[in-house]
Amino acid sequence: MKDWAFLFGVVGLSLFLTFISWDYPFISALYPLMLLACGFILSGIKMVKMLTSKHKGKRTEEMAEESETLRYPRRMWIYLGSGILYVLLMPVLGFLLSTFVTLMVLFGFFGVKFKTTFGVALGCTVGLHLIFVAFLQIPLPRGIIENWLF
C-alpha cells in the first residue's frame, strides 16, 4: 500500500510538473523534462515489478515489520504546530518570550514534568540568546523582554 501511495505521488507530481514545464523555452525545460521522464520510467518499472511480484506473502511480512509502533501519533502535529506557533509569536513577543512560551507549551503537551519543562525552557532560551545574540551577534526579533532588559 505504501509503495503504491509513493508511486502515485511521484507519477502525480511528475505529470503536474510536465504540464507546467510545457511552455518553458526548450533549453530551460530540457533538464527537468529529462528527470521527469526518468521518474515516469522508474515508476513504471516499479509498478510492473509490484504487479508481477510472486512473493506476496513475503511482502506482507516485510510490511508488518516496517509498521513500527508509533505510540503517540498526534505528537507529530503538536510538534509541527508548535513550530508554526513559534514562527507566529516571534515577531510579536520577541525571541526570548516566544522561545520560552513555545517550549513550555510543547513540553506541556508532551506530558513532561513542570520542573523539567521550566528548567529546560529557561536554559534553552538563555543558551540560544547567548550563542546567537552575544556570541555570533545575529540580531533576533526583539520584544517586551528584550526592550526591558537591553
Partner: peptide, 23 residues
C-alpha cells in the same frame, strides 16, 4: 527524546532564521 526534539525544533528554527533573517 521528546525533550531533545523540542530543543532541536527551537534550535533549527532560530538557526535557519538567522541565516538570512527570513521567516
Amino acid at each position: 527524546n521528546s525533550i531533545l526534539a523540542g530543543i532541536i525544533l527551537v534550535l533549527a528554527i532560530i538557526g535557519v532564521f538567522a541565516v538570512q533573517n527570513s521567516f
